[in-house]
Design a protein around this nucleic acid. Sequence first.
DNA 1: CTTCACCTGATAACAATCTATGAGGTGAGT
DNA 2: ACTCACCTCATAGATTGTTATCAGGTGAAG
Lengths: 164, 164
Amino acid sequence: MERFYKIGEVAELLNIEQHTLRYLENSLKIKIKRDERGDRMYSEADLDTLRLVLQLKEKGLNTTAIKLALETAQDSEDGQQPGLVSVQPENNIKEMVSIARRIIEQNDELMQQNHKLEERMARLEKKIEERNVEREKKIDEFLNLWRAEQEGKGRSWLSWLRGK
Amino acid sequence: MERFYKIGEVAELLNIEQHTLRYLENSLKIKIKRDERGDRMYSEADLDTLRLVLQLKEKGLNTTAIKLALETAQDSEDGQQPGLVSVQPENNIKEMVSIARRIIEQNDELMQQNHKLEERMARLEKKIEERNVEREKKIDEFLNLWRAEQEGKGRSWLSWLRGK
DNA sequence: CTTCACCTGATAACAATCTATGAGGTGAGT
DNA sequence: ACTCACCTCATAGATTGTTATCAGGTGAAG
């Protein structure tokens, strides 16, 4: 006959706290049998459900989503993994997968390239800026020298023009 | 041809804030086309997707769940309710194809983007060059004037410095 | 030169979800 | 009687998810 687990055992087995089990039961509206005393009796099937739930939780689904997932899981109960989680391609699609994978790789490459381009561009832009600044600096320098020259003092702007 | 909406319009239409749209785009990893300027361009299909997303949100699904739902939703594009609720194994092939299609599209986009970046870069490079040339030209001009001045003829380089 | 409608982070403020505890209780077995 | 393993209801605390804002920018159009 069927075997049932008490909440303590389940907590042990699945490695979660009892209160969490109770919480899941409520929030997911899972129905767990009770014995005459009102104690929960978990069936193997319940354990499976719970294991699935835990997996889904890991993936980041919230209770509402898990609830939905459980509903649809109902259908594929015959052996297979539930639909939502494992949209596994059949054998004959293997090829497609590999193609897709290659495309994805290419995609990544493109993205990288893209990124590099952007960087290069940024550098270029900076360079323009620098150049601009430099040029202005030179003009300033020149003007100063020139003014000095006008007043007959300071080193000659001519020398600036020539050397250095 | 296809019509595109800017983020402002979409926000209006769907009655959500622009920043929320951006948030969804990130958290759901939805890909929205961009124009040359980098502005988002929402297609009708994107609008549909968003509408679906909003519905799912209302139902209490979190982004992770919605992401999954979107993936599988692709199939039931023919009217029907979103995929999460109705995942059937036979859909796998169709689903894969559509995923692949999306990836390829993305790929194309990336290439385009890439191309645009290159162009932009070329333009930048040209600009730098022009600037350089111009600068040299000015210097030349100046030098000539100056030489002329030195020989007591030609118009004053001073005037060049001042007015042009 | 200013306004407009965008863009990208970063981060603050708030909301929902999940986990942990505590009080008060029950029946069964020692 | 007492302890054990449960139960419920309530609520505190921690973690995530979501929405709002802010600063600092850009290109196009008036």
